[in-house]
């Protein structure tokens, strides 16, 4: 399942829901939660605004989830990404994979967040104390 939303999410609630939908098929759930940092490139971040491409965003996330399910044996997957204005320490993104075995779940979770970062059409804009700036794409994986 994928969700793009302005509202916050609760990682614990999402994990419980995944576990509940599982009916004992999975032996492992691996998740990743991305948060807004208060410091980037040496500057204090007051606020972060997430822009996206409505329509394409949902397609890109669904495609990432589909590929993960084709590559690994997963019983459930979830990708949530927030958009709009966010503050330091706020949740930005949540990715989870449930599988019979932990290695499949770890790999699928890592694949989904790594691919999301390079393929899903989201852009971060930081508000610093004296200006705003668009975040540049990281070169490292």
């Amino acid at each position: 399942m994928i969700r793009v939303q302005t509202e916050d999410f609760d990682a614990g609630t999402e994990l419980e829901r995944l576990r509940g939908s599982n009916k004992g098929q999975a032996g492992a759930v691996v998740s990743f939660t991305g948060l807004v940092r208060d410091l980037n490139a040496g500057d204090t971040v007051m606020q972060m605004t997430l822009e996206h491409y409505p329509g394409m965003t949902e397609k890109a996330l669904a495609s990432i989830e589909q590929v993960a399910n084709e590559r690994w044996e997963l019983s459930a997957t979830l990708i949530i990404h927030r958009v709009g204005p966010l503050s330091p320490n706020d949740n930005i993104v949540f990715v989870a994979a449930a599988s019979r075995h932990r290695k499949q779940a770890f790999r699928a979770c890592e694949y989904m967040i790594d691919t999301l970062k390079t393929e899903a059409p989201f852009w971060k804009k930081e508000t610093l104390s004296d200006r705003t700036r668009w975040v540049e794409q990281e070169n490292s994986v």
Partner: peptide
């Protein structure tokens, strides 16, 4: 058209 993406 858009710059490199920076989500996640």
């Amino acid at each position: 058209w858009f710059p490199p993406v920076t989500g996640g």
